[in-house]
Design a protein around this nucleic acid. Sequence first.
DNA 1: CACCTTTGGCTAATAGGAATAGCTTTTGGC
DNA 2: GCCAAAAGCTATTCCTATTAGCCAAAGGTG
Lengths: 187, 187
Amino acid sequence: MPRAGLDTTAVVAAGAGLADEVGLTRLTMGLLAERLGVRTPSLYKHVGGQEDLVRRIAALAAVQAADAVGTAVQGLAGRDALAAALHAFRTFVVDHPGRYAATTGLEPTGPDDPTTLAAQRLFDVFRAVLRGYGLAESDTDHALRMFRSLCHGFATLEAAGGFQWSTDIDKSFEWLIAFTDRGLRTA
Amino acid sequence: MPRAGLDTTAVVAAGAGLADEVGLTRLTMGLLAERLGVRTPSLYKHVGGQEDLVRRIAALAAVQAADAVGTAVQGLAGRDALAAALHAFRTFVVDHPGRYAATTGLEPTGPDDPTTLAAQRLFDVFRAVLRGYGLAESDTDHALRMFRSLCHGFATLEAAGGFQWSTDIDKSFEWLIAFTDRGLRTA
DNA sequence: CACCTTTGGCTAATAGGAATAGCTTTTGGC
DNA sequence: GCCAAAAGCTATTCCTATTAGCCAAAGGTG
């Protein structure tokens, strides 16, 4: 029997892709194994189990989101940076709902948790965007949390199909950007 | 064997309570049955299965949240109403993380879905709060979505322990209220 | 009160997914 | 070519959801 040549990274990447396709809740070890052309128990040579797999997918998602937002923000400041960051984040979540879902609802195990570290990168990018608004030092953490709540809330609601009625979601998003920009400038 | 005297409402209520205690993901039919002093299959006389149970818990949560926020807002307007609504919502989610989690991540089955109807009640309360700001008709839906994203994002992040570092969460929440009020008044 | 239908509980059994044990073969360094 | 480690496999266990089918309790009706 020829070997599949898997390793942890490949398994996690495939898991993330599969989660995006079928939804995180329907991501099963058997389905992932089938996708990789392997029997289920073989996966346990590369990941510790389903919980470990989800944690690793979450870490991957955090890194990728931070990269996407960081790249989008390059060379911009103020409202342009804000709009670019929000757009990039939203796009990431819409394109990768499964792996983003992995990041929600996991209690952090500690400060050396890879997921925590990856999330830190995303915070740093957001913090850089806020810097352009010249907030007082004492306001920065609050603004960061507000910012994160807004991004996370909008993204999860949209990904879950939570916005029911007909008004154009893109327009709402632009409105939200303008709203945030206004609020930050008058802080 | 004496009867336990269960009905659908009792099962759902117990399920919601248990979800709050142990977390929605650890809510199992066996655990719920044990809590009710009954064997697992008996639950299927009252609810259609686990998915149905979660939907019913979600509907319950939406109704209760709408009641809590609606009551808190009574007789208030403007910034006071805004602050009261946000506080009530946050308190509800912190006190009932399990049942609130049930409301997230379920695709709406249709417009006559009880969960959708219950959520509608919550929207109406929020809409009433916004009315106090005298927004243009065209802005209302956008503001409503923004509002909802903010509430949902903050609440889920806090419930998941997502706010890591040390800054006081209550202070951040007050800051968020002031921020929103400012943004809405200059809309 | 006897009867009988409905209802809510039970035991037993099925199905499917996660995870482990232990065997086997490939792979890569020497 | 030899050998230890790694990566796959089959077989098995455990746990949870769910269904089938039986039986007793409640409650209405003569």
